[in-house]
Amino acid sequence: MKQIVVFFIGFFLTLAILDWFVRLAYVENTSPTDFTEQYGRCRVANKDFVYFNEGFGIGRFNEGRYLGNYYTPQKPDNVIRIAALGDSYVEGFQVFERDHFLTLLEGKLNESRLDSFQVLNFGRSGFDFGDMYAYYERIVKPYDCDIVLFFVSNADLNIQQTDPLIPRVQKTQDGKLIITNEEFPKIYLKNYLTQKMLAHRSTIFQMLNNSRKLVIAGELNHKLFDKFAYMFKEENRSKSTSDIPVADLSFNIIDYLVKEKPDFYIINRDNRLLNNTFTDALPSQIHYIDLYSNSKLYKSNKDYHFWKATKKSGHWIGEGHKIVSEYLFDTLNHK
């Protein structure tokens, strides 16, 4: 009996020490997500992170739960404030914060213009246009931005709002666009809040959680059997992205944005043209920037999505961020 007690004490003590080491050395991060009634599932405030997804990213979620320098919602008079919304391309965990296109853009604008510029990064991995709009309404609006950039792809316009804990955009019967928390699944939310306690404190729990997600995503056979995984039925891991329809909600969001004060920009960050039913319907008050057709991203032989160290193709590499920042700077500078 005494030996069993000693075993368990030793086991949990070692786990605690290893957890500490894993966190200190950034082998794994504790969970970067939090939950508030206002924002739904959002980023943790005041959290440093180091990520190794494709590239190598170091940064910090500030006290406003977004990336980069923290600016208070109260905007000083002489400042032009730009907010960027989008998915993982905008959140940009693959590069150091100093090399992120929004940091570079802020620097360039401040260097070249007499006005003072503040660029706020509200990008969130996995977000579609609906999530971005909900985030805009709930988080970004109080910051009184002059310019709001929405970075979208075709898949983002086919609004699915897959994260059940992000406030949902809905069109009411009388044609109004509302953001609601009503749809939060109660049990899911309760489980999340219980898990959150551990996920914010323990990296080992976070690793367990990541492993669970991989199993759910059908990676178990591949992980366990490596070359022989083909013997098991492969799940269809990727969906075709060609001819993705634009959700009606995307048009409704645009109709609503027109009525708002800031200058809105829709920016195509996809590796092909945005669906023309959407771009043709954009009113003149909403600016459109097409990175695919106009920036150098797709106009040279170099693949700005290929990561040398990991030999993976994915998000923009450092040079890609530079190109995007230069293109945005030129475009915004002319407006």
Binding site: Q3, I4, V6, F7, F8, I9, G10, F11, F12, T14, L15, L18, V22, I204, M207, L208, S211
Partner: peptide
């Protein structure tokens, strides 16, 4: 028991 507990914890974390 203490030796085995340390090894078990190291093994589990490594596997994860």
């Amino acid at each position: 028991a203490l030796s085995y507990s340390i090894l078990s914890a190291m093994f589990i974390v490594t596997l994860l």
